[in-house]
């Protein structure tokens, strides 16, 4: 598995897209930092980008990578290697190379900007952790979709829909439900519904640090009381881990049974 991981990382390192991704974050973060002197303001802007882009890129890139390296996968399958470790290797290679691009792309400008001497370092770390978690979750999801669908067009379509669902549609339905049932106490429900969507969960974890003034209000109090504590953080971390594990389990069960 380690060997395949290594090859897969080498392969991705040679690919243009990893560099484009890295360069995008580098430029974007640098320009934001140049435009605004308020570090926490920059982190809020970065949050919006990370929450939208990380899942999108991970999904698209994951599907693309899987389909492109299909021949290589078939070649590997012909070798006496444990079947599942081929997929683990490829998945980890993809997710970690995307994560490295993200970490370096955001990390380098912030380090130049004297992040380590500022109070925002914790917020920044949470941003990075969330970005990495989202990358892992959505590249897993992409692999799973690609594995399930031989048809590339269908695979791409499903991947886009999956991203769209978590990034936009879910929140839309959520908001409609909130407005529709607004006569009822909805705090517990909204807390639960947030945990069910990794993008929402990441967003709330960051908001707890950044928009604390607004969340100090009546309806934000539930979130602050739950997620603001160590227990809440642990629960949130556990849920994110669960979200990483879910597609992996799908990949495993599909890959073991699939007839290539």
């Amino acid at each position: 598995m380690i060997k395949i991981l290594k090859y897969s990382i080498y392969d991705l390192m040679r690919s243009r897209w990893t560099y484009v991704y890295f360069a995008f974050f580098l430029l974007f973060t640098f320009s934001l930092l140049l435009l605004s002197s308020d570090l926490s303001r920059v982190i809020i802007s970065m949050m919006n980008v990370v929450l939208i882009l990380c899942p999108l890129i991970a999904t698209m890139f994951g599907v693309m990578y899987f389909y492109n390296s299909r021949e290589f996968t078939e070649l590997l399958l012909a070798q006496p290697i444990k079947r599942i470790s081929i997929f683990w290797g490829q998945y980890l290679g993809l997710a970690s190379s995307l994560s490295i691009s993200l970490l370096l792309g955001i990390g380098i400008p912030f380090t130049f900007y004297g992040l380590f001497y500022s109070a925002e370092i914790l917020d920044f770390l949470i941003l990075l952790i969330n970005g990495v978690a989202l990358t892992f979750i959505f590249s897993g999801l992409a692999f799973f979709i690609a594995l399930k669908n031989e048809n590339r067009i269908r695979g791409f379509g499903l991947a886009i829909i999956a991203w769209l669902f978590f990034a936009v549609i879910y929140d839309g339905i959520f908001l409609l439900l909130l407005m529709f049932f607004r006569e009822y106490p909805l705090e517990q429900f909204s807390l639960f519904a947030t945990l069910l969507n990794p993008i929402d969960l990441s967003r709330i974890l960051l908001l707890l640090k950044l928009d604390i003034s607004a969340l100090m209000g009546f309806s934000g109090a539930v979130f602050r009381q739950f997620l603001g504590t160590t227990l809440g953080m642990l629960v949130a971390g556990f849920v994110l881990m669960f979200w990483i594990g879910l597609p992996l389990w799908g990949i495993r069960s599909t890959a073991l049974r699939k007839d290539f």
Partner: peptide
């Protein structure tokens, strides 16, 4: 929206709200 449904503060800064 928040004024009418205070719980929707959960969706603050989400892409959909933007």
């Amino acid at each position: 929206i928040i004024d009418r449904t205070p719980e929707s503060i959960v969706l603050l800064r989400s892409f959909f709200i933007d």
